[in-house]
Nucleic acid binder design. Sequence first.
DNA 1: AGGTGTATGTCGCAT
DNA 2: ATGCGACGTACACCT
Lengths: 220, 220
Amino acid sequence: MRLMVARCTVDYEGRLQAHLPEAVRLIMIKADGCVAIHADGGAYKPLNWMNAPNTVTEEEGRWLITNPKGESLNVEIHEILSDTKWEMGIDPGLRKDGVEAHLQELLAADPTTLGEELSLVRREFPTDIGPVDLLCRNADGTAVAIEVKRRGEIDGVEQLLRYLERMERDPALRGIQGILAAQSVKPQARVFAESRGIRWVEIDYDSLRGIERAQMSLFD
Amino acid sequence: MRLMVARCTVDYEGRLQAHLPEAVRLIMIKADGCVAIHADGGAYKPLNWMNAPNTVTEEEGRWLITNPKGESLNVEIHEILSDTKWEMGIDPGLRKDGVEAHLQELLAADPTTLGEELSLVRREFPTDIGPVDLLCRNADGTAVAIEVKRRGEIDGVEQLLRYLERMERDPALRGIQGILAAQSVKPQARVFAESRGIRWVEIDYDSLRGIERAQMSLFD
DNA sequence: AGGTGTATGTCGCAT
DNA sequence: ATGCGACGTACACCT
């Protein structure tokens, strides 16, 4: 990784055009050729950048970075304050323990937490446009498709509608209903869901996890 | 801006849990307290980060960053290879050109560039599921809703369809038509739009800007 | 503060 | 490659 602190101006042209007036900034070049121009503020996002794959051309007082998509980044270096290089090797990488998959898991373990008499048929039930998170049946035996989201937004309703449309064609699933389950459901998603006959449920992740813990403890 | 190159391990706990095994990385601390941990690859996104507002506590061989939302980042420093600090001042900031807002502005100034006799009723016309970019009327007085995108994809068509469905309920807008306007419209979006009776138009940003310049020059 | 839409979103996984 | 969904999305803008 090369780190250069320099007074510079930058122009990007590609998906849009952007210009940075002269100022002191950090220019970071990673081993894979990625370039990022950072100011001393503004979260982790750089002011300008160019991701791999790209071509970095270094000239006197000027760097030109281009990529195969026709984007370009032109960095004019007016004064170099520091220029260092570091060997870091391949990073062992990040271990994540996510929430979404866990939510689906918890609801699969006990669909009745959605407030209805539901029994699980299967998780990730396949349709020809992708798997629906949970397929259940209610007390009447009616199929119920459940889309699980951390946050319930309009996209989630659209996604569920597409699944329902497909699943309705299956005689075994005829009359299928839909539920959007999320930790929070946005107002516009509520309006839209209701207008299409889809129910929505807000689920409390912490208490759900609490239930799981309580159930787990039975086996201790 | 402080730049530290160090062998470290990192743990984040907040919206999820994440762990970074020991390795050499760049730790960047900006003037506003933002912290970002970068590996030598992988685009501009850091492996871990904590944005302002936050609290940075530096101890011997350990940094603890917390924020008011209850998230925390714990950086264990095992070996420091470099530790420098730079004054950059306030960045003059980025000038962007060619984003959706600008496109919308240009089209609002002259909707006839879409190739029809259109007159603007208003920008950001509100519906109960969000604002539609432009509401116009054509030569017949028929309402026309226009969704402006930099890139026309299926999402944009769906968004427009939702708006149209809502707006159709308003007697004053009955018979409303839809146009998707974008610098480029993906084939899938074209097919989908046409199948739903929505027109699509590709707009040439440069020439649109040229028209604006020409019109501006009338007032010079 | 909360809602809504945009982003040079980025990133990963499937087809 | 392209499409699609998730993201600790971040971010601006408006109420």
